[in-house]
């Protein structure tokens, strides 16, 4: 299972990549594997203000629905429109083409509270224990 060193991670299994005050958010390899074949993704509107821990979107497999929680607070600047027609991208390339949204950070400090790759690896190990 992939856990890139360059990203930060939440306990809800989202990853965050920050560039110039904008956070790109997706779900981790572990999360997509747990969900199984993703068939539908619901994303917020561009311009939506989202608060940390609030629902950012919804990911559906054939027989499950999962909320995706915002790992950071901010304003949605871009959404991955390609997921509307190719939700399977989230399974195939969760850290690349399967990204979900870009958010202009309200508080850059949010990112510091997220886990590093090593911490996330440990977290998964504990969760599965």
């Amino acid at each position: 299972m992939q856990i890139p060193e360059t990203l930060r991670y939440s306990e809800e299994h989202e990853w965050v990549l920050v560039e110039d005050g904008v956070a790109t958010i997706g779900i981790t390899d572990h999360a997509q594997e747990e969900l199984g074949d993703i068939v539908f993704v619901e994303l917020p509107a561009i311009g939506a203000e989202i608060a940390k821990s609030a629902t950012l979107g919804v990911v559906e497999s054939v027989k499950a629905v999962s909320d995706v929680y915002a790992p950071v607070s901010g304003t949605v600047t871009t959404i991955n429109e390609a997921l509307a027609t190719k939700p399977e991208t989230m399974n195939e390339d969760p850290y690349g083409a399967g990204w979900m949204v870009k958010v202009a950070l309200a508080d850059p400090g949010d990112v510091g509270a997220l886990m590093t790759a090593q911490q996330y690896r440990d977290f998964l190990a504990r969760e599965q224990a």
Binding site: F40, E60, S61, V62, K63, A64, V65
Partner: peptide, 12 residues
């Protein structure tokens, strides 16, 4: 599209 339905989404 059963995720709309009660047996999966329950109260939602």
């Amino acid at each position: 599209l059963a995720t709309r339905e009660q047996h999966i989404r329950r109260e939602r």
